[in-house]
Nucleic acid binder design. Sequence first.
DNA 1: TGACAATATGTCAGTTCTGACATATCATAC
DNA 2: GTATGATATGTCAGAACTGACATATTGTCA
Lengths: 109, 109
Amino acid sequence: MNKAKKAKLEKKGWKLGSADEFLGLSAEEAAYVEMKLALSEKLKEKRVRKKLTQAELARMTNSSQSRIAKMEAGDPTVSIDLLVKSLLALGVSKKELGRSISQEIAGTI
Amino acid sequence: MNKAKKAKLEKKGWKLGSADEFLGLSAEEAAYVEMKLALSEKLKEKRVRKKLTQAELARMTNSSQSRIAKMEAGDPTVSIDLLVKSLLALGVSKKELGRSISQEIAGTI
DNA sequence: TGACAATATGTCAGTTCTGACATATCATAC
DNA sequence: GTATGATATGTCAGAACTGACATATTGTCA
């Protein structure tokens, strides 16, 4: 994970430890953050493709528009659990979910 | 998901809604539970393969022996986040994690 | 058998996540 | 312009999760 990316994440509110590796983010931390961001992007992509508003998806999942917005924005207060439940509610299969998680993000590590 | 499996999970403490589908568990609920169980099993498998005790893994992850035990037992109070973080700490790659999540469990759905 | 290490189970106070709400910003149409 | 719908941001009380601890159970030696 490069320095610019780390700075961008910290601006978003992520608290990233440092000093483990070359640019201050352990491989595990990086993988964890990247997974969550991949799920965020998948969620937005799926919702938009289905032509749902955030408010509509919120209703479908007993959540709220603001939490959906935070999920899509990659807010660090959102759990993987919530992202996964939301994606499943959008009809994403376990297989597709697994693929999203495996995904490498350009420009990292 | 069949009736016996559902009963077994409920005995473990899972609160599963009902009435959505044929045997009372929506496809999304089933997929969510199966994902967590797949991660549980992966965790145990990885820990054992590395010849670590639960207490040792707990130390490595700033957790506790009892929580590791609950993770491996598929306890519903364990989050996917914690499972994922623990697996990453054991050196599992995003790719392998994704594969675990995609996995179909014999005898379900 | 008993002693010991590992794992399982139960509980709980502190922490984190959540939905809800208010409000701000952005986009598109008129 | 400004009205309207959608999305973003900030806050917070209540819900869910967590590590820690105590204790029970299980497994494996001699």
